[in-house]
Simulated assay, not measured.
Amino acid sequence: MYVIVAYDVGVERVARVLKICRKYLTWVQNSLLEGELTPAQLRRLQQELERAIDQDNDTVQFYILPQASVAKRVTIGIVKNAPSQLV
């Protein structure tokens, strides 16, 4: 499955959340990562993030697509880091 993760967390947790996400996904731009994951990898990522965030103040959103080919990206401006699946 192709997963896009966007997060909005307190500044004191940004580095930790990014580090966790980068173990599984490709960093695309500030607070946005994406890539192919197995269901087991997605569960591990979600569990790690649940422990890292403040669930009363932070938000992590997952967009789950069946495969990368159904995602279409349109970028205005510079491309910071494009995942190889959608280049």
Rank of each mutant, 00 (worst) to 15 (best):
Q41T: 01
L42A: 07
L42T: 05
R43C: 07
L45K: 00
L45C: 00
Q46P: 08
Q47K: 14
Q47Y: 11
Q47N: 12
E48P: 01
E48N: 03
L49D: 01
L49F: 04
L49G: 00
L49H: 02
R51S: 07
A52F: 00
A52H: 01
I53L: 02
I53K: 04
I53A: 03
D54V: 02
D54G: 04
D56A: 15
D56Q: 15
N57G: 08
D58V: 05
D58I: 04
D58A: 02
Q61V: 12
Q61S: 12
F62I: 05
Y63E: 05
Y63M: 07
I64N: 06
I64E: 05
L65S: 06
L65N: 08
L65Q: 05
P66E: 06
P66V: 03
Q67D: 15
Q67T: 15
Q67H: 15
Q67I: 14
A68Y: 13
A68R: 14
A68C: 12
A68P: 09
V70N: 07
V70G: 05
V70L: 10
V70H: 09
V70K: 10
V70S: 09
A71S: 07
A71V: 10
A71W: 11
K72M: 09
K72D: 09
V74I: 05
T75K: 10
I76P: 00
I76A: 01
I76C: 04
I78M: 12
I78A: 13
I78K: 13
V79G: 13
K80D: 13
K80Y: 13
K80F: 12
N81D: 05
A82Y: 13
A82H: 11
A82T: 14
S84H: 15
S84N: 11
S84E: 15
S84D: 11
S84F: 13
